[in-house]
Every structure is written in C-alpha cells, then in structure tokens.
Amino acid sequence: MTDVEKMVAQLDELIQSTDLLTTWSQEVFELRHNYTRAQTLATRMEAAIERVSPPGSAYFKEMEKARTVGLQDRVDIVRSTVIALRDDLRAGYLSTIVELVHADLYSDYLEMADGLLGTRHKDAAAVITGTSLEVHVRALCVKHGVDIEQPNGAPKKADVMNADLKRAGVYETLQQKHITAWMDLRNKAAHGDYSAYDEHQVRLFIDGVRGFMLKYPA
C-alpha cells in the first residue's frame, strides 16, 4: 500500500465514523455523550486536513470557516472537506509528476526504515529516515527557490535550510521545530549515541517524516 493509499484509507475511516452523526436530530446531537463524540471526531478530521492538505489550500480555508460556527455545522463542513480531500487524493489531483517520482522514492526508503525497525534495528532505521528527511528538505528548497548553497559555494546544512524554508513561508514555526527535533534524533543515531532514544521515538520519527513529505511534496 502506497503512502497516498494509506492516507485515503485513514480519511475513509474518519468519514465512516461520522456517518451516524449526519442522521441525528438536533436533540439527539446535543446529548452530552453524543456532543463529546462529535467534538472528538471534528478534531480528528481537522487534524487529518492539516496533516494531508497543502498549506493555504481550499481544504484549509473550509476548515478555518468551520471553526467559526456551531458544532453540528462544524462537523458537516469538515466532513464534506475530508470527503473532497479523499476524493482528490484518490484521483491524483494533489500531486505533480515530479512530486510523484519523489514520493515513490521516499516511500521506498521509509518502507525500508519500517522493516528495519520491525526487526529491532532502530539505529539503522533512524539513519535512513533522517537521510530521507534531509534530501526532502533540500528538494523543497529547490522547488521554492531557496538557496541550497552558501555564498562561498559550500552546501548548506540541513538546519540552515530548515530555517530558510520557514523564513520563506513554506511552512510554519511548529513544523520547523518538528524538523529540528527529527534532525537531532538522526544526528544521535549517526554519531552512535544510541541510548539517547528508543524504538517508540523512531516509530514517531518515521511516521512524522512520512506525514511531512505528504503535506509538503517536493
């Protein structure tokens, strides 16, 4: 299963989870346990939109609009947005040819990291994931016209490119901080500081980088 197929499956699961909500009357919807469930599902759908859709897209704008209305309307809006996002992902409307080539390449490396982690080789998995992350950050710089070399011609370090991408508005401060933390874990793995992290952190590392590459294709 490709990364895009995984995201489509996750969105499908969210849509199915909200099917019952759309048939509830106002009185049933406002029952305390139903209201809490609706809040939880709305938050999960919004998180999925933020995780998958390109920044500044129509999906984001619809989600922002949903946050200004009541919960029942909010659920309806974000659910419709998730359906549109799923259908567009499935139809391939969110990827250019170059992005698809990169996505396939990165997917292969992350699948390799998955396999290594599954056989308890967390350190090799962390190094491979970190290398994939740095290559993707560099590719994002090329895509968005951000210099990948210093004035003297030397290549920029990953943390510098990360800061430059944030400064260029490619992503926000929170994403920059995530990447900084991921690169720190990669550096620990590359320099033999194996006791500084565990398998659970490497799992979060792999999943986080996969989501980052889907959200910010290069």
Rank of each mutant, 00 (worst) to 15 (best):
E172P: 01
R167S: 03
M183P: 02
T129V: 03
L204N: 13
Y106S: 04
A9Q: 04
A113C: 08
K122I: 09
R67F: 06
L14V: 07
M1D: 07
M183V: 10
V160H: 10
T36Y: 13
L100S: 07
T173W: 02
K61R: 15
I77P: 08
L204A: 14
D114C: 04
R79F: 03
A91D: 15
D19H: 02
V146T: 09
L41I: 08
F29V: 11
G169P: 01
L41E: 12
M1G: 14
E46H: 06
T2V: 02
V75D: 09
D114F: 03
I49R: 01
T36S: 14
G145F: 08
G145Y: 11
Y35M: 04
G153P: 07
A47T: 13
K6V: 02
N187F: 05
V202W: 14
Q39T: 07
A181W: 05
L133G: 03
L89V: 03
V98D: 15
L133R: 11
H102R: 07
L71H: 11
S107L: 04
H178F: 13
D184I: 06
G70L: 11
G211Y: 01
K188Q: 14
I77F: 11
E99V: 04
S107P: 00
T180A: 12
E27M: 09
S57V: 01
H178A: 10
D114L: 07
Q26C: 05
K177P: 00
A47Y: 07
G208D: 12
M45W: 08
D76W: 04
G56T: 00
H178N: 09
I15W: 03
H144C: 07
V209S: 03
I128Y: 00
S132A: 08
A181F: 05
